[in-house]
Design a protein around this nucleic acid. Structure first.
Lengths: 344, 344
DNA sequence: ACACAGCTTGCAACCGATTGCAGACTCAAA
DNA sequence: TTTGAGTCTGCAATCGGTTGCAAGCTGTGT
């Protein structure tokens, strides 16, 4: 059906080897023949068969992307970024969704890894040991998580949280609640840490109210506990949680930001549509996907130096670690602290 | 690195051909040898190399999925369905996002088609001729669109719209506005048609207010025109548009559903989080993805009969056409028509 | 004892590319 | 004219499977 390298060779009056070289090592073949080959190529609309090439080179020109839940707008955006950047490099992307099942994750990666050159693991739920095992026999890039010796791209959670706290403190808030996500989540830990530090530094009191599902429902569940803390502001693990909070606070008759200010993280599309529109720390989601692709391709092109710069001297943040910064987007869900002091 | 068929053959004391047959045509090899092969296979953890197999069989075990925008929750859900069902069949999925660019669509499919066995085109923006051309040399399944001779899965838009209108009429609404999506969209056309028929049948007046982007912004843009129609209810092209309407109506000081009832289509997660929660026609999104996969795999397994049943006698809805039904989900955005008659 | 059918198995070609090696050719220097 | 270096090109092996064909073996009927 499709033209093969032999067809091109015949038409150009050369051997298949010459065609192959004309395409991949142009400097090695005479300009005149190269031109004849080029002509034949586009006369026939020839494109090399990837499977055949992969067979001999060992490279498939394909990468895998594993996310917990495609229906979560955060991961959808990351996927969009990955996919767009991969296309630029003429690399195809296998997308797999674990349905938030940590157990499925390792198996999925293992299955995928036989068909791809490398894998991007977004917000992996697996344990550190498991992750290390996976990275042992597959080229892996992490998104939204750092792990010893594995390249990845993460967000500067500390910086983002600092902006949020500074904003709230400037508005007069002194007692700030924190609704964490899943306890095992790397992001939860680092956001919590960043909040604690920022609060201490800016002389505000941080009140953690526990760990909740990173969803709208999680936010609904947390709301009443938040109210009970007597805080005048709350930072939520992510925007979905924040929007869940908004809903339940409204149902309980509290006004946002009149009685309570709410801050989220991510800046998903939904956040600007919420009522009141959500103040949030915007994370560059597609950018994370793009960088992950670049990181992965770099590792694949140059495995030894890549491994060296990632693993050398136990330095975690080598060349092969991207860090992205969040940006506080102020909308309607934050305002001055209420004058009436909360019961203390 | 990984075990090859030769390794297995050596360990089992047979030839590679026998191993191959033991795996793909078990009936053809002696039970005893088959057992020895099986033992060798899982001792070595052997898995056939897909590229090599694909080279000779011409099948890659991969399908492509093309969507206009992954960040749109509707398409994210379809993708989720496709991906999950494909995995069950041990088929991998290439996902590509056209960024709502109709021009990019054809090119993308063409590039993809060389690497996959078939393509699922979700809500294609391309023209009918272009679509036919694509289907000419690639196995294609359409989602959210019907086209002569190409298998696909669509929604019963007419039925869904009928439910919406019946609901509104029962609430006393007699003048219903319709905010359409992109004019060239197949869904827009069929939803409009369904509404027109239902309205006529149920003696309500349908007032189309034009075509808008299928987004939150589109809804914001349409809102004032909707108000100007004097309608007491409005059906939006999809939930994003409906939520945009909600926002702008609120800004204009109208109460929903007090002054105006709003109905969307899709039932994306965001809809139940909107305020007021959105009444909408729920479409089974993941189901559409799953069926599309089944359809595609059927065609691939049995091209001639598939082609026959899809194209024969110009019958569009052959065996290879799935139709899914919507379900009206009543929430808070619809209520009785206001007593004060709108100026007529 | 022979022929023949039926069941298993192996040989070898092949899918479509890439690449090490060697041969052909050009041209300059001796 | 011969030699040698340098450039360009082709041959043939190879990647890891699949499959048509033929050969080996067993068992049955004559």
């Amino acid at each position: 059906m499709a033209a093969t390298i032999r067809d091109v060779a015949r038409l150009a009056g050369v051997s298949p080897s010459t065609v192959s070289r004309a395409l991949s090592l142009p400097g090695m073949v005479n300009a005149a023949t190269r031109a004849r080959v080029a002509a034949a190529v586009d006369q026939l609309g020839y494109e090399p068969n990837r499977a055949a090439r992969g067979l001999i080179t060992g490279r498939t020109g394909t990468i895998g992307l594993v996310v917990p839940d495609l229906a979560n707008p955060f991961f959808a955006s990351v996927t969009k970024g990955v996919q767009a950047r991969a296309r630029r490099h003429d690399v195809a992307v296998f997308v797999a969704d674990t349905d938030e099942d940590p157990a499925a994750e390792a198996g999925l990666v293992r299955a995928l890894s036989k068909q791809v050159d490398g894998v991007i693991l977004c917000s992996p739920r697996a344990g550190n040991d498991e992750l290390a095992a996976i990275a042992q026999d597959t080229t892996v890039v992490l998104v939204n998580r750092a792990a010893e010796g594995i390249p990845g791209v993460t967000y500067d959670n500390e910086g983002g949280m600092r902006q949020a706290v500074a904003h709230l403190v400037a508005l007069g808030h002194q007692r700030i609640a924190w609704v964490g996500g899943p306890a095992t989540s790397w992001s939860t830990q680092h956001r919590g840490l960043g909040l604690r530090n920022a609060a201490e530094e800016l002389r505000a009191k941080l009140v953690p109210v526990g760990n909740f599902a990173p969803t709208y429902e999680g936010g609904m569940a947390a709301a009443d506990q938040v109210i009970a803390t007597g805080a005048t502001a709350v930072v939520a693990y992510n925007d979905l949680v924040a929007i869940g909070l908004l809903a339940r606070l409204h149902a309980r008759g509290l006004s946002v930001p009149g009685d309570l200010s709410v801050v989220g993280v991510d800046d998903i599309a939904m956040s600007s549509m919420a009522r009141p529109a959500l103040t949030t720390v915007r994370l560059p989601k597609q950018e994370a996907g793009r960088i992950a692709v670049e990181l992965l391709l770099t590792m694949l092109d140059d495995p030894e130096s890549a491994a060296a710069s990632a693993g050398a001297h136990g330095e975690l943040r080598g060349e092969l670690h991207g860090e992205l910064h969040g940006e506080l987007i102020v909308r309607e869900s934050t305002g001055p602290a209420p004058h009436t002091q909360p019961s203390e």
